[in-house]
């Protein structure tokens, strides 16, 4: 039965994020999402956004929402690999799915139900809230001609990609976001991965790195998420729940198109105005990365039952959709030269 009281009640919620305040595209995505929820609900669910460090440090957003100290969080789910390794499949894993495929899996292929199950343990309800599209391989001051060049390469690359680089003989260096530029400039690191041309341009890496490598084998389309404290989400009236969900879907497409529409403009700027040397990883290097990625994911799946469950769904869906994509899109790209 409709609850008259609930309809008139207004909510003032806080959203913590893992991005510096108003961080280009990603932080702006959180700002947009909060604005839309507030607008669509006509102010009945008023969301204010807090950047990393404003209320809690970036990596504490998960705990803050999980324990109900704040109601919402905006992040990328692979940040929570320490809470459960299965979280990584809902943002990006090396040689994983791209944005369109990940969206299809989560919205239509059973991904959301698994994600809900995983996050329910932490009293959270997750939604997709954005995507970076296919990323770049990163900024390098050493040319990568063969696998030998990975040996001893000092690279800032977090997560599973980092594990792959380490297995290939590289040295993974932990480096805070604010230090990456300086470390790259001074040679403390030889390389760093970041996002894609639009975002990387804003970070100014072209001033301190020679080579810009593609493709982003480790992040083919990293999603961002909105996670809501589950008890608080369930206490919302049905229309506000629907508004949160719809606003997230809008934010998801908005962020992806934001990146996609700008990337090439900035890539051309980087190449033509700043004379960045664009390079593709050699085939044997990519091949090795692929083998090692399978190993790395295999190790996770073997140890953690939930990861296994998620991975089975993920990989089956990926296999299926790739078959179609090869026939449809790959052919289309070839044709449309």
């Amino acid at each position: 039965a409709p609850n008259v009281h609930a309809k008139t009640k207004t909510y003032k919620w806080k959203m913590v994020t893992t991005w510096p305040p108003h961080f280009p595209v990603l932080g702006e995505g959180a700002d947009d999402l909060a604005k839309w929820i507030t607008e669509m609900s006509d102010g009945r669910l008023k969301v204010s956004v807090y950047g990393a460090g404003e209320l809690v440090p970036a990596m504490q957003a998960f705990d803050a929402v999980s324990q109900g100290m704040v109601e919402m969080g905006h992040a990328s789910s692979y940040y929570w690999a320490g809470k459960s390794p299965a979280t990584q499949f809902f943002s990006a894993v090396p040689f994983g799915m791209n944005a369109q495929q990940l969206n299809s899996w989560i919205y239509q292929g059973g991904g959301q139900a698994l994600w809900d199950e995983l996050y329910a343990q932490f009293n959270l309800k997750p939604f997709l809230s954005g995507n970076t599209g296919v990323q770049m391989g990163g900024w390098f001051n050493k040319e990568i001609k063969s696998l030998d060049d990975i040996k001893g390469l000092k690279m800032r690359i977090p997560g599973l990609g980092g594990k792959v680089i380490a297995k290939a003989g590289g040295t993974v260096v932990l480096s805070a976001g604010g230090e990456v530029y300086t470390n790259l400039e001074r040679g403390v690191i030889d390389a760093t991965e970041w996002v894609g041309p639009y975002h990387d341009y804003k970070m100014g890496f072209y001033k301190v790195a020679k080579f810009y490598y593609y493709p982003g084998w480790h992040e083919a389309g990293s999603s961002t998420e909105l996670f809501v404290n589950k008890s608080k989400f369930e206490s919302l009236p049905a229309d506000l729940k629907a508004i949160v969900e719809s606003a997230c879907a809008r934010a998801n497409i908005s962020m992806l198109t934001h990146f996609e529409s700008q990337n090439n403009k900035y890539l051309q700027k980087l190449v033509n105005e700043h004379h960045v040397k664009l390079k593709k990883f050699p085939d044997d290097v990519i091949e090795k990365f692929r083998t090692l990625s399978a190993e790395v994911i295999g190790e996770i799946v073997e140890k953690d039952p939930m990861s296994k469950k998620v991975y089975e769904s993920y990989s089956a869906f990926k296999k299926d959709i790739t078959q179609w994509a090869k026939l449809s899109e790959a052919t289309f790209y070839d044709m449309n030269k």
Binding site: P57, M59, Q60, D63, A64, M69, A176, G178
Partner: peptide, 19 residues
């Protein structure tokens, strides 16, 4: 008092600031 539950998260931020 509830808001103070954020305090350990902020202290953890000081602990993990490896710079």
């Amino acid at each position: 008092m509830d808001f103070f539950n954020l305090l350990p998260l902020r202290i953890w931020g000081v602990m993990t600031n490896y710079v």
